[in-house]
């Protein structure tokens, strides 16, 4: 009995240490954003005289609202397109046997191996040629189909009972009908989880948006933040305020759908 207890204490100690390590930087970001100019350079763990000053400065320095809006448009669009293309592709892969299926599947899986840095130059040239630079569409288009999403959807479709699809065919349902009225309602939570992961990834994306947008007004929030970090002004309070703002949507989603998100990351792996 005693031994079991000591193991449990050790377990919790380890877990609490890990948790502190995981969330402390986030905590430090938030309290720094509320510290005033004199306090910011001290190591106090709770702001003595909390202030909104840093936030006001951050809003004055960058078009934060516009950038958040850009991020939102880009992330939403990207998520919808990735879900749409992967639902259609996943359906085709489980529903039919056709010539070249293995080849297509292999080609889809192999894109996993192509790092973005290996295709960024030709893509950058192409986006500029078709004039989609400085445009949310230019950010979204190269990511409109995601191998990660396709393979995840394919995995969950594969475990869907084929007899249900057969039954729907006998009922006279069309293929799109089977996909959206029979399969989707039954794997809704999986698709929602995948959608959340895709949204978070899209929100956090920064290399490609940085190449496509030069003007702050057209850029997602990550780009604004990056230039703020690199601007070398000693405005750490404001920087932390801007960083906090950029995290809020993600943290809100996480707060409400935490279990969903963790489960689906465990299921789908990482991108």
């Amino acid at each position: 009995m005693k031994r079991i207890k000591s193991i449990t204490v050790l377990q919790h100690f380890l877990l609490i240490m890990m948790s502190i390590i995981a969330i402390f930087p986030l905590y430090w970001m938030i309290i720094s954003s509320f510290k005033n100019e004199s306090e910011i350079f001290t190591s106090s763990f709770i702001p003595q005289a909390p202030t909104w000053q840093n936030y006001l400065y951050a809003f004055a320095e960058m078009p934060i609202i516009q950038m958040l809006f850009n991020s939102f448009v880009v992330a939403t669009l990207m998520t919808i397109l990735q879900l749409a293309t992967s639902l259609l592709a996943g359906y085709a892969l489980v529903r039919w046997n056709f010539k070249g299926k293995l080849l297509i599947f292999t080609l889809l899986s192999l894109t996993w191996l192509i790092p973005f840095q290996a295709v960024m130059i030709p893509n950058y040239v192409l986006i500029n040629q078709i004039g989609l630079n400085e445009n949310p569409l230019g950010i979204v288009l190269p990511f409109a189909a995601s191998t990660f999403a396709i393979l995840s959807i394919y995995q969950s479709f594969k475990s869907f009972p084929t007899a249900l699809i057969d039954a729907a065919r006998l009922d006279g349902e069309s293929d799109l009908g089977i996909l959206f009225r029979i399969i989707l309602p039954n794997i809704r939570s999986t698709v929602v989880s995948l959608g959340i992961i895709l949204f978070i990834n899209a929100w956090n994306e920064y290399l490609w948006p940085m190449l496509v947008t030069k003007e702050m007004e057209n850029a997602p929030i990550q780009i604004g933040l990056k230039s703020f970090v690199n601007s070398d002004v000693n405005m750490w309070g404001s920087l932390m305020a801007a960083t906090t703002i950029s995290c809020i949507p993600i943290l809100l989603i996480y707060l409400f759908l935490q279990k969903h998100i963790v489960d689906s990351f465990v299921r789908f792996g990482i991108k």
């Binding site: 009972p161 007899a163 249900l164 057969d166 039954a167 065919r169 006998l170 309602p185 039954n186």
Partner: peptide
């Protein structure tokens, strides 16, 4: 022809009822 055009009813081994 398509299954729906055959005028047949089918009962599956695992019933294949729409769960939702």
């Amino acid at each position: 022809s398509e299954p729906k055009d055959r005028d047949i009813g089918m009962v599956f081994q695992n019933y294949a009822l729409y769960p939702h």
